[in-house]
Write a protein that binds this DNA or RNA. Structure first.
Lengths: 108, 108
DNA sequence: CCCTTAGTTAGGGATAGATCTAATTAGAGT
DNA sequence: ACTCTAATTAGATCTATCCCTAACTAAGGG
């Protein structure tokens, strides 16, 4: 899981809303597309961004594609964000927590 | 706390690293600026982005400014992200959790 | 007062992101 | 094969973000 990709993916209101919807269960690309006032190609790039972060996965069934949230990556993202934002009260960061040895990331 | 602002602020490696550093304790603007290969004005805009999200706060002491993480907003952001990304196993979302009644945010 | 140190503002150029229309692939029916 | 619907790719444009240099404000010394 790449935190940068996840944060980039979540950095758009439509994409956040897609994630929130998929949390309640899977949905087809078409159904999701109807919920927002943007063109279908635009929705396609939003799906790509979320797929790029591996936050969602799509399964083709005939002509329609059903997207569902990738719970594993969502969990990993939460852990990474906990690690980043502190949350240092009892029983906080889980297995992947001992990672932040304070070396600056390279700037893009 | 505005999730959009927080996510925008965290959507840059330098700003994430600043947050991670401040998690270990406060630091002056100058000390932080030395850690990255960017100009001081650039660092200033990064600080502004983090202040805009209220993730950090600066206190002027004479000529230097000491930044520290805003733990309250960090906590609120964690809650909001838990809410967004699921995390629906026992004892998950805290007080502010019952908020997501699935209405799409307006696109920008 | 002038100078030095710390940080911010202003303005500009480069890159990345969002969105559209038009054209294209993918799959199923008829 | 033709066609209809679902979704993606291509290309263009527009806006936002990043980063720089140069000029500015803020606060203390000599």
């Amino acid at each position: 899981m790449k935190l940068a990709e996840v944060l980039k993916a979540l950095n758009h209101p439509i994409r956040r809303d897609i994630v929130a919807r998929l949390k309640d269960g899977p949905a087809t690309a078409g159904d999701l597309a109807e919920a927002y006032q943007v063109s279908k190609p635009t929705m396609s790039t939003h799906f790509s961004a979320l797929k790029g972060a591996d936050l969602i996965r799509g399964e083709r069934d005939g002509v329609t594609i059903t997207y569902h949230l990738n719970a594993t990556v969502a969990e990993e993202a939460m852990s990474a964000l906990m690690d980043l934002l502190g949350h240092n009260d009892a029983a906080a960061s889980k297995s992947s927590a001992a990672s932040n040895s304070r070396k600056p990331e390279p700037s893009p």
